[in-house]
Nucleic acid binder design. Structure first.
Lengths: 142, 142
DNA sequence: ATAATAAAGGATAAAAATATCCGAAATAAA
DNA sequence: TTTATTTCGGATATTTTTATCCTTTATTAT
């Protein structure tokens, strides 16, 4: 469904959102809390910084921060930044041109599932997931 | 969503289903009709033969046939044979253990989307897709 | 029987995704 | 100002996925 990079990115963003917004969170801390490889996580965070959804500060006591409130960042934004929009607009059978006017055999059934996924990703914010973590209702690692 | 192998496999199965069930369909013909690489398609068809959903005959006028009626083969079966059941049961964030008793932050929202996908794949048969092709309503290539 | 045909299966290659390493740049603290 | 810390960015390595090639095996037609 999502790439490994995207899974790590989502977990990292949720973890950062869970922290006090005024405090910076370091790479190693993020990777450990999300059970993700450090160097690969670094690459993904760089992508998110370039995308503008994350802010980074170098040097001692440096680290990462959300660029805006956690309730204003949704999963769709993160997925799109890392995996692109294939999952939102791509054909289920990989056809380059597939739409209502020239649909593949699964187009209409697939589109409704995909729209459900898209709606879910757009409506789910970092805030609500971070709150779930705080409340001990959900977990970032197994 | 699905691997390339799975996309090719689904298209191949739909194409085979569209043919007269008594006539065998050759590899090259399948690959051409589905715009898929011949040798790679061969590997995928082998997988489906081993799985028991396809039947192959060697030699002149050999080729492939569905092992049962097209209305009795659904997309879920094909996806599971090629990509495994990760997409049906896997965690959205890649956690090994993620269920109602220890959910990841996206578990419940993700589960409902995934269940929708699963229901769609289980309820969609090769027959209805082959019929769509016959009727010129849908297409296997762009 | 022999030759031709077509899938099976093993070996290999190419491309993409995942992952690591290390020097450079920026920044804060001493 | 110097040193330590931390992210950045480029290079490289590993693994998985995608794709091809070629020999073997089975089967049909001649």
């Amino acid at each position: 469904m999502f790439s490994k990079a995207c899974e790590y990115g989502i977990k990292a963003m949720i973890y950062i959102a869970q922290q006090d917004g005024t405090r910076r969170v370091g790479l190693k801390q993020i990777a450990e809390a999300t059970d993700s490889p450090v160097a690969f996580t670094a690459k993904i965070l760089q992508t998110l910084v370039r995308d503008g959804v994350l802010v980074s500060i170098k040097g001692p006591s440096g680290g990462f921060n959300l660029s805006r409130d956690a309730e204003k960042i949704n999963l769709a934004h993160i997925v799109k930044a890392i995996d692109g929009d294939e999952i939102f607009i791509g054909c289920g059978l990989g056809l380059e041109k597939c739409d209502g006017s020239r649909p593949c055999p699964v187009h209409f059934k697939f589109a409704s599932v995909r729209d459900g996924l898209s709606a879910m990703l757009h409506s789910t914010t970092l805030k609500e997931m971070a709150d779930g973590l705080d409340a001990g209702k959900v977990y970032l690692t197994h």
